[in-house]
């Protein structure tokens, strides 16, 4: 967290020194400060800031990839004549515990086309998900747990 504040402060200094008060310039300064902090990081002061940022970026790419893939699949399903779906409601046991993590996982599942979070059990152990393509229940559960849930745990945990 302190590394993040330092990073922001350095980016701000970059903007003041260069004299262009624009978001793009701030962004450039932020990246430069990040690279610089990464270069001078010391082994003695352990900070997971750098790992976290890389995880967040990886997460954004992963989610974008999933979003495009699922969107194209559903779009093809809608255009193609006839129905070729295996829909159903699946109970997914949760490993994540906090409200923030469950909310984020539920929202991500709902944002992906073809899957829809219906509810979470009152004791927060099971997430009920409606999905359009369930070839195999265990396979589907595993794909959610090892795809979305693991990433959410990494980013927020």
């Amino acid at each position: 967290m302190t590394t993040f504040i330092l990073n922001l402060f350095l980016a701000f200094s970059w903007v003041t020194v260069t004299g262009h008060f624009e978001p793009l310039n701030f962004f450039i300064g932020f990246i430069l400060a990040y690279v610089m902090l990464w270069l001078v990081r010391s082994g003695s002061a352990p900070s997971n800031y750098f790992k976290k940022v890389q995880q967040v970026i990886g997460f954004i790419f992963f989610f974008g990839h999933e979003l495009v893939k699922a969107n194209l699949r559903v779009a093809w399903e809608v255009i193609r004549p006839g129905h070729h779906m295996y829909p159903g409601v699946v109970a997914i046991p949760l490993d994540i515990k906090t409200d923030a993590e469950i909310t984020m996982l539920a929202n991500l599942i709902t944002l992906t086309p073809g899957t829809l979070t219906l509810d979470v059990s009152s004791d927060r152990k099971i997430l009920y998900v409606h999905a359009m393509y369930i070839e195999d229940v265990d396979e589907f559960t595993r794909s959610i747990k090892e795809g979305f849930e693991k990433r959410v745990q990494e980013v927020l945990g």
């Binding site: 129905h83 779906m85 829909p87 159903g88 409601v89 699946v90 109970a91 509810d119 009920y128 369930i134």
Partner: peptide, 14 residues
């Protein structure tokens, strides 16, 4: 109701 060709409904009765 769910579609009649739905394969599974694990929320049913919970």
């Amino acid at each position: 109701p769910l579609w009649y060709r739905s394969v599974i409904d694990e929320l049913c009765g919970q």
